[in-house]
Design a protein around this nucleic acid. Structure first.
Ligand SMILES: [Mn+2]
Ligand SMILES: [Mn+2]
Ligand SMILES: [Zn+2]
Ligand SMILES: [Zn+2]
Lengths: 140, 140
DNA sequence: AAATAAACGCAACAATGTTGCAGTTATTGT
DNA sequence: ACAATAACTGCAACATTGTTGCGTTTATTT
């Protein structure tokens, strides 16, 4: 469980000025190793049983990592947050794809969408949230 | 509580080939009277206390109405479904706006977005879900 | 090694939605 | 108008996801 991702994770966390605890490092390492956005539950399953990690601690660590911009969380129609490591390659604003069959969720390319979406008078734009739904390659 | 919306609601329900129960009619009337998409809780509050309506029945009625395409439900980052009557004027695919301060949610115009979003090889497009976030006129 | 703020683990709670089942009711046919 | 019946309802119990309070532990600094 001590691979390249662990090392990177620890570096990133220390660089963010927070305590480098086993939980945070392990969690971020899991997210760095994953290409999809995964749920709290899925992170729990990937986390080695030997080292135990309370679910509340996991929730709090994810919140902390998101606050430090090391990960981002994605909303979904199944009422479950999914988390994904922030990579250089995708900007803050990007679309996501969700498979309607297996629920896998991946990040798509940056949003080529005009930031000034036509809103009613008096409304102020902040951000766009876009999810494309369909079938993934496995489920097609 | 017997206004124009009630009459319309009952007609729509009968036309859909389901039982015209007090609950369904009342619920649809509430949604027809509303311009925003509102939550289960908000519908409950608007429903006259005198006529009582169980929360489970409300959930089931909403599911039924959505299945009959008389209303649509919208996902949100607060893990709460919001419901809105289907009007002729907006197509099946349209964007929504959600105020990040008061959580009000309105329907925006039809999606001028290319239905063929660039997906990885082997992926199949089904639909797009787009929410613009910002401040509504009241909260600006 | 000691001091200390930060993080953790546990238990209890909250919010939203679902399921099973017995009882009720809207509709249909007579 | 009345009876038959499938559709609908109400209740209780449950499931899932996430949050809060608080006493204990730990990573970091001195
Ligand atoms: Mn992403
Ligand atoms: Mn809408
Ligand atoms: Zn899939
Ligand atoms: Zn607002």
């Amino acid at each position: 469980m001590f691979n390249e991702f662990h090392t990177t994770a620890e570096e990133l966390i220390r660089h963010s000025g927070g305590r480098a605890t086993a939980g945070r490092i392990g969690i971020l390492a899991i997210l760095l190793a994953e290409q999809q956005a995964i749920t709290h539950r899925e992170i729990e399953q990937r986390y080695p049983e030997a080292l135990q990690l309370d679910r509340v601690t996991l929730y709090r660590a994810l919140e902390w990592l998101a606050g430090k911009n090391l990960i981002h969380k994605v909303t979904s129609d199944d009422r479950v947050w999914r988390y994904h490591a922030n990579r250089e390659l995708h900007s803050h604003q990007h679309a996501h794809f969700k498979c309607t069959r297996c629920a896998q969720m991946i990040c798509l390319s940056d949003l080529p969408i005009d930031q000034s979406w036509p809103l009613p008078i008096g409304y102020r734009f902040q951000e766009i949230e876009l999810t494309v739904k369909g079938l993934c390659a496995d489920c097609c």
